[in-house]
């Protein structure tokens, strides 16, 4: 799981991009703490062929990327 809480964009997207490029995982969990990061990671993931499930937690958002 990638913990990108506390980071503002584009860092969370960069973290995901690095993981996707290196390992092309079938599923990937990403934890972020702001809407902007949710939108940006989701956009990047969809353009990379992943479906995204966004789960809103109290403070954070857990994104599950699957393909």
């Amino acid at each position: 799981m990638i913990d990108a809480t506390g980071y503002s964009c584009p860092t969370p997207v960069l973290m995901v991009q690095k993981e996707v490029k290196a390992k092309a995982p079938k599923t990937l969990e990403v934890l972020v703490d702001n809407r902007c990061a949710v939108e940006n990671v989701t956009r990047f993931a969809r353009n990379s062929g992943y479906a995204v499930r966004v789960e809103e937690r109290e403070e954070d958002f857990l994104l599950t990327l699957e393909r």
Binding site: A51, V54, E55
Partner: peptide, 13 residues
């Protein structure tokens, strides 16, 4: 704890 889940498919418009 409030939990809301949203499913977003791959692909874009």
């Amino acid at each position: 704890m409030e939990k809301k889940t949203q499913q977003i498919p791959a692909g874009t418009s």
